Simulated assay, not measured.
Amino acid sequence: MEDRWFTVTEIDPTTYAISEYGHWEKVHSFLLLGKEQAVLIDTGLGIGNIKRITDQLTDLPIAVITTHVHADHIGSHGQFDTIYVHKEDEDWLMNGIQGLSLAQIRKDMSRDLTLTPPESFDPSTYTPFQGKPTALLQEGDVLDIGGRKLEIYHTPGHSPGHISVFDHAKGYLFTGDLLYDVTPVYAFYPSTSPEDLVASLEKIAHIAKVTQVFGSHNTLGLDPSILHEVKQAVRALREQGLVAHGTGIHRFNGFSVQF
């Protein structure tokens, strides 16, 4: 599939990454197809309408699972009828993202573009989605989309209601902004929690039968061996007393964190 803004990668015949490589954040959203419905994990930046892509990939009804409420993950939420979010991020979805001004969000959306955005994108009027979710998620929820069960892990730190999603059928672990490579995973804003982020990293590192890790930025698909590195990083951060705002960037084998 060719598109001016989005890059579609088939991970397998029922799983697609929809990526925005023309933006400096290199955001990935993920479309998962079941036998009865589909799930879209996040809706991207909102620079382009991601629904024009999902409409070409499936006729199944689509439910949106929000890993967390930051502007680069909820950009096209308004194009879908069914939206899930963790209860701790519900307020941000309805009333705006805490700790980030609209001016800063617009600046971040429009800078360092390497592809020409769609003509409909106007950074001066860009406004993050706000609206009421269809339903709230919590730790341990399982969504069965027909032969494919998706388990919700509450993994706060980057935001209060950040979640990770484990696909039991495939062994795929979708980690949102909790774990990715190249640029630092961060918890340095006042609205973040380094302590919660490290606890969340520890939680996902113990999920069994992970075959591939999919973060929401940078490299598309990481070997599950990175979870072993995460266990060691968690131990080192705690032992060295680094789990606190202002301690800077901490680099490990395959990823880094910034507090």
Rank of each mutant, 00 (worst) to 15 (best):
G157H: 05
P118R: 03
K35L: 13
P133G: 09
L242W: 07
D177M: 06
Q56R: 14
A71W: 15
D112A: 15
Q79Y: 13
L197G: 08
E239I: 01
S193Q: 00
V213I: 10
K107I: 15
R111V: 14
A17Y: 08
A17R: 02
G246T: 05
V165K: 02
Q130F: 05
P194M: 02
I50C: 12
L237I: 07
T219A: 13
T9K: 13
P13C: 07
T125K: 01
K26C: 14
Y172S: 07
G157N: 05
H245C: 08
I207S: 04
A63Q: 12
F174A: 05
G131W: 06
M94T: 14
T15A: 11
W92K: 09
R251N: 03
N218E: 15
S19W: 05
K87A: 10
V8D: 10
Y21R: 15
L32G: 07
G176L: 03
L143R: 03
H86C: 09
I207H: 00
E229P: 10
G46K: 02
P156M: 10
E88W: 12
Y172N: 05
D122F: 00
V27H: 11
K132Y: 07
T67F: 00
P224C: 12
K132D: 11
L242F: 06
L31C: 03
I163E: 00
F252H: 00
T134V: 05
Q258I: 07
N49C: 10
T66N: 13
V165Y: 08
H162F: 01
V85R: 09
E10F: 09
S110C: 13
D122S: 02
S120D: 09
R238L: 09
K107Q: 15
D122V: 10
G44Y: 09
H162K: 02
P128W: 01
H245L: 01
M94K: 14
E10V: 03
P133S: 11
P118D: 08
Q56D: 12
A236H: 06
I163P: 03
Q240W: 10
D122Q: 06
G254A: 09
I62W: 11
I65K: 07
T15C: 11
